[in-house]
């Protein structure tokens, strides 16, 4: 029983990671109906920013996380202003291909600067080792992930529902034209939401580097999972993305432990079923 619970906990920790990496795409899809696969590249960038900060400049791990956030946020705003905003009116496929092109370029660029191998880095001592919690032996870093993830999810949900900026974002998700006509600067709100989404992806990448490994193929490895989480959860819903992230994370980890031969198939089959049953996702509003 304890073993099952430990595996379940590991799955939840993984799920929170996936949630943090996915939430930016969910917002861009919900708000601008824009399929931004480059989100996976922002995650990778965050990871490399963290490694560079801690290994090259001796920044403490905790302090490197905001750096990862800011680096990815800056990159995403830059890309949005330079490239993506010209493609808001195109179809899904064009957006997929455009951002896939950006992913290819990011992979090659990262290989150029950092080489093609996995990045090695050391966690601070207080995040390594294991802790006994309620009779379970859990890895300290995963506990840290669960706490951080839960805190971020709470902040996001609260921020979107209770703050003025959140209300503006929700207005834009509901109806961009009307929001614009009511005097909201939709362009600015888009850029702000894009920055936060990209920054979160970067933060997710920085947090993931230790657990999932960081190399130039990181975006391609996690792209599919990010897409599944966002489309199954429902675009533009934070709670939907959270639920889908946790479900996928747990299913993936549990599957690998207990049903190694069916794990992947079950997840993909569930995705197909959900997409056929509710094309806008489980919590999508336009069902």
């Amino acid at each position: 029983m304890a073993a099952v619970l430990t595996v379940l906990f590991n799955g939840i920790a993984y799920g929170f990671l996936l949630f943090i990496m996915s939430v930016g795409l969910s917002v861009s899809l919900g708000m601008m109906n824009f399929v931004n696969l480059a989100q996976a590249s922002f995650s990778m960038l965050g990871g490399y920013a963290m490694v560079a900060a801690t290994q090259r400049f001796g920044v403490p791990f905790l302090a490197s996380l905001p750096i990862a956030f800011l680096a990815a946020a800056a990159a995403s705003v830059l890309i949005e202003r330079l490239v993506l905003r010209h493609f808001y009116d195109t179809d899904d496929l064009t957006q997929v291909l455009l951002t896939l092109g950006l992913v290819f370029m990011s992979i090659a660029a990262v290989t150029y600067f950092w080489g093609g191998s996995y990045q090695r880095f050391d966690l601070p001592a207080w995040l390594t080792g294991q802790q006994d919690v309620l009779g379970l032996t859990l890895e300290t870093y995963r506990i840290f992930l669960v706490l951080t993830g839960a805190l971020l999810a709470a902040l996001l949900i609260f921020g979107l529902e209770r703050t003025r900026f959140g209300a503006m974002v929700r207005a834009c998700v509901d109806n961009q034209r009307v929001a614009g006509a009511c005097g909201l600067n939709t362009q600015l709100i888009f850029a702000g939401a894009f920055a936060i989404g990209g920054g979160l992806a970067g933060l997710g990448g920085a947090l993931a580097a230790n657990l999932l490994g960081l190399d130039p193929n990181f975006p391609l490895r996690y792209l599919v999972y990010i897409l599944i989480i966002v489309s199954v959860g429902g675009m533009g819903t934070i709670s939907g993305t959270l639920a889908a992230g946790l479900a996928l994370g747990t299913a993936d980890v549990m599957g690998k432990y207990y049903f190694p031969q069916f794990g992947g198939v079950a997840i993909y089959a569930a995705t197909v079923a959900v997409m056929l049953w509710r094309p806008h996702g489980l919590m999508g509003r336009r069902a």
């Binding site: 064009t94 291909l97 455009l98 092109g101 950006l102 290819f104 370029m105 990011s106 090659a108 150029y112």
Partner: peptide, 17 residues
Amino acid sequence: PVYWYFWIGLLLVLVVS
């Protein structure tokens, strides 16, 4: 051998642009 994907990516971006 390592970076050719950059140019494929760029070509893709240019074509759709």
